[in-house]
Structure formats: structure tokens, C-alpha cells
């Protein structure tokens, strides 16, 4: 039965493909075999052109023009005014004194978020990977367990945590059991910021654990045997062998983590109802989103100028990462 079904499917695919083949083979004969690779590349390059390279050009166009018109050609040229507006500030550490105070609030929020998130995720992932790397029972189970949240959608994660942290949620029930007064966690600035980081660590640490674990498992086993023969203590083995050899992986993970953290949006947006309380959790992507799509007044110039600034930072981080990746390969 099963064999028959697969045979039927095979026939079907073959039938369809032999029809598809006719025009493509004709084109192939027309162009000559030498030019066939261009044919294969065409769909991809067209899509890249339209949806990646063209937007980059438009982005620059938006950033140097003003007004609210969607079409670049209909927008008045304003030079670097958008950047000037974003960057003019009396005291950069106090967003309130800046012309675009929202932008600087978002910058500082993002800055602190990236700092805490990178350190926390890296530490948790590293510890977990080191533990999982020990030859122990149930490694596959735990690896899968920690990885599971990575696959979930940010909206789902935002909602699940929102419910967990609800005034009537499980955490408050636990607090009450311990005799601590309940909190409306997501409406208190300190708690809300803490939980945005916590949820982010919870969400992504499995991914970085997996990468670090792969790095750990690539360290040759005989090095550990040699260290054991050399009577190295566990602590010494960790600091003299494991961490130095994991170094390149750690750097790559660090940069990757930074690149992704700067772009924090989805789960924070859902969890905090759009950056709340107030602007305590408003991040840079959210600023761009709100400027461009948040209201009927489309401030595409400011949004794009902010995008360009963020793009420059991400590009710099990526270049560092590529360099590190190449170095890792050399080792």
C-alpha cells in the first residue's frame, strides 16, 4: 500500500516536472548551456534586488528627505536634517533634553537591555553548555528542554509570560504563599524591565547553549585525558583548556547575541503592551516602527534615518563577527 502510494506520488511529480521541463529546456537550448547558471540564479537575484537592495537605496532616500509622502521622488530633499533632529541633544544621558526624546529613550533602553541581556544570556548558556557537555545521563532530554522555547513564536511567549506575571498569576500566588505582597509586575518600571530581560534569556538561551555545546564537543577528548594525567584540577582544566579553546565560539556567540539584542522587538512588544509602562521598555526598533507605521502621520524620514544609524551599528558588529568566524575557521 505504502509502496504504491509513493510510486503514485513519484509518477505524479514526474508528470508535473516533465511538463515544467518543456519550456525550461527550450530556454536552455536557446541560451546555451553556458548561460544556464544565470537562469537558475535569476529568481533569487530578482527577489533580492527588489526586496533587499532596492529598499536599502530607498532607505537612504527617505533618510535625506522630509514630509510624509510614501514615494521618495515626491519628497522634499532635506539633506541631513533628519539625522540632525535625531542627534541634537543638550545632554545625551537625559533623553528629556533631546529634540527627539523618544529616540534617546529608546537608545538608552536598548543600550541597557543589550548590556544585561548579553551578559545574562551568555552566562546562563555557558553554564548550561558546560554542564550538558559532561558525559551525563539525560543530556538529550535536557538539551531539547532548554531548546524548546527557541521554537515558539514571540507573540506566544509574550502572552504566556504576561499570564504568568498577571496580578492573579502564578508568580503572585507564589509570592503570597511566601507572605510577600502581590505586584502588578508589568506595570512597575523596575519589575517590567527585569522581566523583559528574563523573558528574553528564557526565550533564546537554548539556541546559544546549542552553539556553545557544539563548540565544546569539538574540543578533542585527548586534551582532557592529557590534563588528567598532568593532574590538573577541574577548575584548572576549565580555565586552562575548556574556556581558551571555546574562546572563538564564545566571541561569535557574543557578537551574534549583540546583533540580535539590538533588534529586540516582538516579544517585548507583546509582553509590555508596546513598550510600557510608559516608555520604560520602548526600544529602537519599536521607535522606528512607531515613527513609520504607528500613526497615520508617517514620519518616514526620521524612521529611516534611525534605521540607517542602526544599520551602521549592526553592519559593524557583523563585520566583526565575520572576521571572528574566519579566524575560528583558521584555528
Amino acid at each position: 500500500m505504502a509502496i504504491k502510494a509513493s510510486a503514485v506520488l513519484e509518477r505524479l511529480v514526474e508528470g508535473v516536472m516533465s511538463l515544467v521541463e518543456i519550456p525550461i529546456n527550450a530556454l536552455e537550448r536557446l541560451m546555451g548551456r553556458k548561460r544556464v547558471p544565470y537562469l537558475f540564479l535569476a529568481p533569487n537575484l530578482v527577489l533580492f534586488g527588489i526586496f533587499t537592495f532596492l529598499p536599502i537605496a530607498i532607505s537612504v532616500g527617505y533618510a535625506v528627505t522630509g514630509g510624509t509622502n510614501l514615494f521618495v521622488t515626491d519628497r522634499p530633499f532635506v539633506g541631513l536634517d533628519n539625522f540632525r533632529q535625531l542627534l541634537s541633544c543638550q545632554d545625551y544621558s537625559r533623553p528629556g533634553t533631546c529634540q527627539e526624546s523618544l529616540f534617546w529613550t529608546a537608545i538608552w533602553n536598548t543600550f541597557w537591555f543589550v548590556g544585561f541581556n548579553v551578559v545574562a544570556t551568555l552566562l546562563v548558556a555557558l553554564v548550561t553548555a558546560l554542564i550538558l557537555n559532561r558525559a551525563m545521563v539525560g543530556r538529550g532530554f535536557f538539551r531539547a528542554m532548554f531548546f524548546y522555547p527557541v521554537l515558539l513564536s514571540p507573540v506566544v511567549i509574550g502572552l504566556i509570560w504576561k499570564w504568568f506575571l498577571d496580578r492573579n498569576g502564578l508568580l503572585n500566588a507564589f509570592f503570597e504563599m511566601m507572605g510577600v505582597p502581590p505586584h502588578v509586575f508589568l506595570l512597575e518600571v523596575g519589575w517590567a524591565r527585569f522581566f523583559v530581560v528574563l523573558v528574553s534569556v528564557w526565550f533564546h538561551m537554548g539556541f546559544y547553549t546549542l552553539i556553545l555545546l557544539a563548540g565544546l564537543q569539538a574540543i578533542p577528548k585527548d586534551l582532557y585525558e592529557a590534563a588528567a594525567i598532568d593532574a590538573a584540577s577541574r577548575r584548572r582544566t576549565l580555565f586552562a583548556i575548556t574556556l581558551p579553546l571555546l574562546g572563538p565560539n564564545l566571541l561569535v556567540v557574543l557578537i551574534l547575541l549583540m546583533i540580535r539584542s539590538v533588534q529586540i522587538f516582538d516579544e517585548a512588544w507583546v509582553l509590555t503592551n508596546g513598550g510600557g509602562p510608559g516608555t520604560a521598555n520602548s526600544f529602537i526598533v519599536q521607535y522606528i516602527y512607531q515613527m513609520a507605521f504607528g500613526s497615520d502621520l508617517r514620519l518616514l524620514g526620521l524612521a529611516s534615518a534611525a534605521s540607517v544609524l542602526m544599520g551602521v551599528v549592526l553592519l559593524a558588529l557583523t563585520l566583526v563577527q565575520l572576521r571572528l568566524a574566519r579566524k575560528t575557521e583558521e584555528i
Partner: peptide, 9 residues
């Protein structure tokens, strides 16, 4: 996230 505005356009 960097090109979302013009990509929308």
C-alpha cells in the same frame, strides 16, 4: 528591521 520601512514602500 533595518529595511522594513522602505520594504513596505
Amino acid at each position: 528591521t533595518v529595511v522594513m520601512v522602505p520594504a513596505y514602500m
